[in-house]
Design a binder for these strands. Structure first.
Lengths: 217, 217
DNA sequence: ACACCTTTAAAACTAATGTTCTCAGAAGGG
DNA sequence: CCCTTCTGAGAACATTAGTTTTAAAGGTGT
């Protein structure tokens, strides 16, 4: 989605410079700032490239506004905005897991969102969150009210903490994932607890746990 | 430190507007943006007030730069920088707690920092963090490697999660704080565990736990 | 070679925007 | 009361900065 066609080196350099400039100075650069920094002979060339970057969704330009450049991330959202992830539902032992839908969050507007550290979305892309209800995840060292930040995925590397759906039990659980042949070992984070063994067909990975956040007050 | 003298309502309004504008638009406002929003009759009045706000350390103005306003926080640092809290040390059962010094972090440069959600520093001010080493905090549902975000304080309200230093035992612990006469009840977060009772003299509160962060990958 | 599109270039134009000048009322101190 | 300082107002000024115009060089496919 990020690039269908090739990005000319000069245009990439412009894009990189804008990001660096904003980080360093707290405000977007002017056309002439870009011109000098990228060693471009004319402002019109900068304008030309900005026009394309705008058209291709890499940034927004506010017409006739000084420094009116706004960088967009891969999801088309302004960069530098407060990083929020939607809490798409609650998770508890025995309760059905909400569906992770990358699009069409129209129905989930009733749920809140939570602020997270900016490096999370930066490193993992689009994320969702679940609020844990009850003490059922205590073996994963996750308390009532904790928020679990999740990257949607159907695959996982051995050892990764995943949101697993046990089909037969109709139960969601947070465990470390270890495939062992046609069996799967699900290891609780609390190493004093015993693992669960399931048949691979019975386990459905819904996502990887990226972070657990507990807030007080 | 924030204000020695009175801040006129209009000047405060300008300051608030600048902050809101930056949050909403991702770039600072122009003098005329401020003029319209704050219903000021002349740009020179805006300039006059900005000059004073600059002199008093509330913001930086870059001369002759469009939208060259940069808001500063109470510590004189640019607002909007990535929110980081210093990890001032590690905490483990039986190990001495590092001292929380608000100033003079010159010696603690060897430690890393961690990105946190922007609302944490916004709500609680200056924060520190400790990285938990080992399984000793497992009764507080805190795992090896978790980062505990702390607001320095020597007082706490009943029920708050605190960093407590037990003098006799020379031990740091994270528990919920309940004063009971000249006794103190320290309740683990995991409600299936039993509380500890100490004499009030033996307990020293070092800070309040604001958040616990666990990152994977 | 020829159309056609992309990209670069130089210069000028115009709107946006920071700054300054002059004037005036209000507030406080001697 | 007069003087100074702080604050506000209106207008003009000067620079910054987005935009446009025109032209041409570099590809690509036919």
């Amino acid at each position: 989605m990020t690039l269908n066609k090739k990005m000319p080196a000069r245009r990439q350099r412009i894009l990189d410079f804008i990001q660096t400039f904003i980080e360093d100075n707290g405000l977007p650069p002017t056309v002439r700032d870009i011109q000098k920094a990228c060693e471009i002979s004319s402002t019109s060339v900068v304008d030309y490239n900005l026009r394309i970057l705008d058209r291709d969704g890499f940034l927004n330009r506010r017409p006739d506004v000084a420094r009116g450049i706004e960088l967009l991330d891969d999801a088309g959202q302004p960069v530098g905005a407060v990083p929020r992830v939607q809490i798409v539902g609650r998770i508890a032992a025995g309760s059905p897991l909400p569906v992770f839908s990358a699009e069409g969050n129209a129905a989930s507007q009733e749920f809140e969102s939570i602020e997270v550290a900016p490096d999370l979305p930066k490193r993992h892309g689009r994320l969702f969150a679940l609020e844990v209800q009850g003490q059922s995840m205590i073996d994963a060292l996750i308390d009532d009210g904790d928020v679990v930040v999740i990257k949607p995925s159907h695959l996982a590397e051995p050892g990764e903490m995943v949101v697993a759906w046990l089909k037969d039990e109709e139960e969601a659980t947070l465990k470390k994932f270890y495939p062992e042949g046609d069996q799967v070992r699900l290891q609780p984070a609390n190493s004093s607890m015993d693992p669960i063994y399931c048949s691979a067909e019975n386990v459905e990975i819904r996502g990887k746990v990226v972070s657990v956040i507990r807030k007080f007050g």
